[in-house]
């Protein structure tokens, strides 16, 4: 921590607590009511993994799937970290993910 960090305003821990809670509570409420969408996430994650595994060596911890709410809209976020330093197998297209 540099000397100037001392003067920078850091977020209060209560604000962090509230932000973290509003996300997790919304997610769990959606998950506990079937048909509201979020209940398919674990399966989606498994199936995505199966597809990606055909092209790349990858493990489960490198794929995260999450559903967040921003105002009135829902954002489905996929985050896939491909292993480093391995050239793609010849003949197989390298999938690109935005």
């Amino acid at each position: 921590m540099s000397f100037f960090d001392y003067f920078r305003k850091r977020p209060k821990s209560a604000t962090l607590a509230k932000d973290r809670l509003s996300i997790i509570v919304a997610r769990e409420r959606a998950g506990s009511r079937p048909g509201t969408g979020a209940d398919y996430l674990p399966q989606l994650q498994q199936e995505l993994l199966a597809v990606i595994a055909r092209y790349e060596k990858i493990d489960l911890s490198n794929v995260t799937v999450s559903l967040d709410r921003h105002g009135g809209s829902e954002v489905l976020e996929l985050n896939i970290t491909l292993p480093e330093g391995q050239p793609p197998r010849p003949g197989s297209p390298r999938p690109s993910f935005a």
């Binding site: 209060k12 821990s13 209560a14 604000t15 607590a17 509230k18 809670l21 509003s22 509570v25």
Partner: peptide, 16 residues
């Protein structure tokens, strides 16, 4: 602690 921003306030918990 709430005043110092170190604890969730009544309003925060009610909203959640």
């Amino acid at each position: 602690m709430v005043k110092r921003g170190e604890m969730l306030s009544v309003a925060d918990v009610l909203e959640l």
